[in-house]
Design a binder for these strands. Structure first.
Length: 275
DNA sequence: CTTGTACCCTGACCGC
DNA sequence: TGCGGTCAGGGTACAA
């Protein structure tokens, strides 16, 4: 899925379009889409008749704030996407629609997810508060300082790449941006998180914010599946320094970009630029 | 506590 | 053309 910038692009569209809309009817076609209620009907029953007050984001989670304080948490994970309209969206792009929300303005919100790794969770206010507490800081918030990052990494023996992917430490970074951020900060992904010096932490902090902001500016990265609500792709894939560039020359020194595996996932790096 | 691994699911792609 | 292996913006349960 989509990481923070992609989810934020989706959130902006959804918030602009869904605010103050009431959900008339919900059709969920796959049982496994509902993560914390016994049946599809149980979730649909809770949602129908509710007004969407706002669409928020926390890390990679989308949050529909509903009247009565409850929250619909949506994790789109690897391949979830949305489309909005009176009629079904282009089948060439949206061929696995697994949920449809009928709205009071006659439009439908379509949720499409090929791999069905994503899902919906109904959260009562205290459950949302617990989820919020379990996630690390928002990297683009003003309160996310280099000092905060240092605290989060203190005493960590896990490799810095793994630590960046851990949503309890920092919320929103995924596999693409973890590699990109470390390249920009010139830090080797295998370094233990707790071994970074203060000036390296400062560089990492700056890189996290720059990379995520630039990606947001470019409407996200479309490596394979990501689409905004209007069906458009992002363009940050053209700006990637290392991700997906195994064997190609490092943009900084020319040495071939290497691929390795950490925690079962690909890491891309330049072994001469990153120490 | 922390860290690593298997697994969820489908489709695209590569080499034989 | 078909088949098997590998890989994919993620997260969770469970084991060590």
């Amino acid at each position: 899925m989509p990481e923070l910038p992609e989810v934020e692009i989706i959130r902006r569209h959804l918030d602009a379009e869904l605010r103050e809309r009431t959900i008339r009817k919900v059709r969920i076609r796959r049982r496994d889409l509902v993560l914390n209620l016994p049946t599809v009907r149980a979730l649909a029953g809770k949602l129908e008749g509710r007004r969407i007050c706002r669409v928020d984001r926390r890390g990679k989670n989308l949050l529909f704030r509903l009247d009565g304080e409850a929250v619909l948490q949506i994790q789109i994970r690897m391949t979830g996407r949305f489309a909005l309209g009176r009629r079904r969206p282009d089948v060439a792009i949206y061929r696995h629609i697994v949920a449809i929300f009928e709205l009071d303005d006659g439009r439908n919100l379509y949720y499409d997810d090929v791999r069905r790794l994503g899902g919906f969770r109904w959260l009562e206010p205290e459950e949302w508060a617990a989820l919020d507490r379990s996630l690390g800081p928002e990297p683009l918030a003003a309160s996310f300082t280099a000092r905060r990052l240092e605290t989060v990494l203190e005493g960590t023996r896990a490799p810095i790449k793994n630590a960046l992917l851990d949503q309890r430490r920092i919320a929103g970074i995924g596999n693409i941006y973890a590699s990109e951020v470390l390249f920009r900060a010139r830090i080797h992904p295998e370094r233990a998180g707790g071994s970074l010096e203060t000036r390296e932490i400062a560089a990492l902090h700056r890189s996290i914010r720059t990379v995520l902001r630039d990606a947001l500016q470019a409407a996200g990265t479309t490596f394979r599946d990501f689409r905004a609500v209007n069906g458009r792709s992002g363009s940050y894939q053209h700006s990637l320094s290392v991700y997906g560039r195994e064997g190609e020359p490092c943009r900084s020194c020319g040495r071939a970009v290497e691929r390795s595996v950490q925690a079962g996932r690909s890491t891309f790096l330049c072994a001469s630029c990153q120490k």
